[in-house]
Amino acid sequence: MNRATLTLLALLLICALSLVAAQQRARKLFVALERAQIEERKLSQEWLRLEYEQRNLSKSARIRDVARNQLHMVPITPDRTLYLKEAK
C-alpha cells in the first residue's frame, strides 16, 4: 500500500470513530432531555396541586372556621364594642 492510501484509511477511521462518539453523545443528551421533561411534568402537577390546596385554604369559610374553632374568636357585637372620643 502506498502512503496516500494509508493516510486516507487513517482519516476514514478517525471520521468513523468521531461519528460513533457524536451519536453516543446525542443519545445521552436525548435521554437527559427525556428525564428533564418527565421531571417538568411532575413539578407541573405538583404546582397545580399546591395551587388548588392554596385556593381551598384561603377560602373565607375556611378562615372563619379556623378563627372560631382553633383561635376561639367570636364575631363583634355592639355591646362588646368600646367607643372612644377624642379629647379636644
Rank of each mutant, 00 (worst) to 15 (best):
R68M: 11
C15P: 03
F30Y: 14
K59G: 07
A26Y: 01
Y52A: 09
N56F: 11
A16E: 01
D79M: 06
Q37Y: 04
R3Q: 01
R68N: 06
T5N: 09
K59V: 07
S60V: 15
A10S: 05
M73R: 02
A36V: 05
V31L: 08
T7R: 05
E34W: 04
L48F: 11
L19S: 04
D65W: 08
Q45C: 08
L43M: 03
K59M: 08
N2R: 10
K85V: 04
T81G: 00
A22R: 02
L71H: 03
A87G: 08
M73G: 00
T77M: 10
N2L: 06
R27C: 09
E53G: 02
Q23Y: 02
K28P: 00
R27M: 11
L50F: 03
T81Y: 01
R62D: 06
I76F: 04
Q45R: 14
E86G: 04
Q24L: 07
A4W: 09
A21R: 04
Q24E: 04
M1L: 08
L82H: 12
L13T: 11
I38Y: 11
S60R: 13
S60A: 14
L19R: 08
L6M: 15
K88G: 12
I38P: 00
N69I: 07
C15Y: 08
L11G: 09
S60G: 09
Q45H: 14
A4T: 13
L33F: 14
Q23D: 02
Q24W: 06
H72I: 01
A36I: 09
R27K: 15
R64H: 11
Q23N: 04
S60I: 14
F30P: 01
S44P: 02
S18K: 02
V20A: 02
L57D: 11
Y83Q: 12
E86M: 06
Y83I: 15
E46P: 00
L11A: 15
Q37N: 08
A22N: 02
T77R: 12
L29D: 06
L57T: 07
Q37G: 00
L82S: 04
V20R: 03
R80W: 03
A4G: 07
Q45F: 13
Q54H: 08
V66T: 10
E46I: 07
I38K: 07
T81Q: 06
T77Y: 13
C15R: 05
S18F: 06
L82G: 01
L19P: 00
E40S: 11
E53M: 08
E53F: 07
R27W: 09
R80Q: 09
L17Q: 07
P75G: 00
A61G: 07
I76A: 07
